[in-house]
Design a protein around this nucleic acid. Structure first.
Length: 488
RNA sequence: GGCCCGAUGGCGGAGUGGUGACGCGCCGGACUGCAAAUCCGUUUACGCCGGUUCGAUUCCGGCUCGGGCCUCCA
């Protein structure tokens, strides 16, 4: 019997070719990944966070496969307009006006909120966070380098002529011509798809964020930022560029066009010409009541789930149960299901930990086939849903060495990122925001109930249990914790 | 109008040309004073109509329904 000695090759879906491709790093043994991060003009909603859970699993998988990972996530704090007609307001400027704060304060506040969510979801820190406003000089330089051959100037700014690069829009699979004329046109644009590289501050106005440039005072275009930051930090071409599936239509095709111009290449027949070899996009988290849209006003924040008593890692598990390229249906019921599963996993691992003791161990041959299947699943375009089932199978194995089992579980959790080796049941018991009862009161009532039970006064003990239930506390005699919050 | 995607059991969600993943729920059992928690076991599916095939949920065509993008969004 030959154990599979060689690791399963990593296969990833490349949006540019719309096909699964074996991962071949640009630099041997390395993986350089750039992920489109948030525009920090508002809180992220849980759908936004799915993109970072996805990017995190990708990064963890690359690490698991032995690649030296360099991951960069950007923070956009300027230039992202409220619409794509190059005529809208800057999102940052608008929120600053609404909240009567400086744009810098807005950026800082929402950046911190985003980072809090990143931590709560056990998303690993990237090698570098790039902040757009830190790269303005480089953006100007980038723009200058492509201006002559690929851009033209209008009163409102410097525009990129999409006809100057081959295969514009191939990523989106969109026709470049026609157009229903449904978006507001900017006077003078040569092609509907042309986009702003530099937006001039209108005469007589002053923006909170503006810089000098050869085209006058103004701000960089949104698409320019990602081309500049990814190229600066990772170098063209780098391995993988990730983002939400919505970016596949506009933002990334524009980024690719800029990269083609910058690299002085033309056609996209050679993947390197797009700046990144592989473009990956996660699908949306959807909610039946409508799309998860910020502009619709209300949206689900991670903090809301926490306030209701759902541990954030239950949301991460919910994401992992589905493939990143599939739409995922959000519901409270589904989130509750994930929390229940997470609790059981955590309890199972805790038992293994107890029996394993302190001894370090490595998984023996008994675990080989399982770990192979785990790796095969994760290597198959990140099939976390199947990988999870392998984890569960290993957890359920009887009569195996606890230390070895723990080591096997640890290897898998390093990819899943659920923190299963450090979490305990108590940590998952989040206090819902709405409840008034204190834990001291709960303990007191539980003590009284214990006495009643000892005295076989079941009427009283049941009454006390009902009393707790009415306040959102569920009594569980056979559970190590003894009680838990009831979720609405 | 244009481009694209999907349709799997109560819910979510994998996957496959032929032995019906998995999770949660339900049901049964163990445990419990009774419950809950936990553990064990069990149940239900592949939108409709054709075609290819020895055989299709899986491939092809049509239909119906749903969704996304084309306008800010991960």
């Amino acid at each position: 019997m030959t154990e599979t000695p060689s690791a399963t090759p990593l296969t990833l879906y490349n949006s540019l070719t719309r096909s699964l491709e074996p991962f071949v790093p640009v630099h041997s043994g390395e993986a350089r990944v750039y992920s489109c991060g948030p525009t920090v003009y508002n809180y992220p909603h849980i759908g936004n966070m799915r993109a970072y859970v996805f990017a995190d699993v990708l990064g963890r998988t690359l690490s698991f496969k032995g690649y030296k990972l360099t991951h960069v996530i950007n923070i956009t704090d300027v230039g992202h307009l409220t619409d794509d007609a190059d005529a809208g307001e800057d999102k940052m400027e608008r929120m600053a006006a609404v909240q009567k704060q400086s744009i810098w304060d807005i950026a800082e506040h929402y950046k911190q909120a985003y980072w809090a969510d990143i931590r709560a979801l056990n998303i690993r820190q990237p090698a570098q966070w790039t902040i757009a406003t830190d790269y303005v000089p480089q953006m100007v330089a980038f723009a200058q380098s492509i201006a002559e051959k690929h851009c033209y100037e209008l009163d409102s700014g410097l525009y990129f002529d999409v006809s100057t690069v081959a295969d514009y829009g191939r990523l989106a699979r969109a026709a470049t011509e026609e157009g229903e004329g449904r978006i507001e046109q900017v006077d003078g644009k040569r092609h509907q798809a042309d986009f702003a590289i530099w937006r001039k501050t209108p005469a007589g106005e002053t923006r909170q964020m503006e810089w000098d440039s050869p085209w006058g005072r103004g701000a960089p275009g949104w698409h320019l930022e990602c081309s500049v930051m990814s190229g600066e930090v990772l170098g063209f071409p780098f391995d993988i560029h990730t983002g939400g599936i919505d970016h596949r239509e506009i933002h990334h095709p524009n980024e690719i066009a800029q990269n083609q111009a910058r690299c002085c290449t033309n056609g996209l027949d050679v993947a390197e010409n797009s700046g990144a070899k592989v473009w990956m996009h996660n699908n949306f988290l959807v909610e039946r009541s409508g799309k998860m849209s910020k502009s619709s006003g209300e949206f689900l924040r991670l903090q809301l789930l926490i306030d209701k008593g759902y541990h954030p890692l239950a949301y991460r598990l919910m994401c992992l149960q589905a493939h990143y390229r599939s739409e995922l249906e959000f519901s409270w019921e589904g989130l509750g299901a994930a929390l229940t599963r997470l609790k059981r996993m955590v309890m199972g691992v805790a038992q293994v930990r107890e029996r394993a003791g302190e001894a370090e161990a490595v998984p023996g041959p008994r675990f080989g086939p399982f770990l192979d299947r785990f790796e095969a699943a994760i290597s198959d375009d990140l099939n976390t849903a199947v990988a999870l089932t392998v984890f569960d199978e290993v957890l359920a194995l009887k009569k195996v060495d606890a230390g070895e089992k723990l080591a096997a579980l640890a290897q898998m959790d390093a990819v899943l990122g659920l923190g299963l080796l450090t979490l305990d049941r108590g940590t998952l018991r989040l206090r819902p925001k709405g409840v008034a009862i204190t834990e001291g009161e709960i303990e007191a009532t539980l003590a009284a109930r214990k006495e009643a039970r000892a005295a076989k006064d079941f009427a009283r003990s049941d009454a006390l249990r009902d009393e707790l239930a009415a306040q959102g506390v569920e009594v569980m005699d056979g559970d190590p914790l003894g009680w838990d919050w009831k979720l609405g």
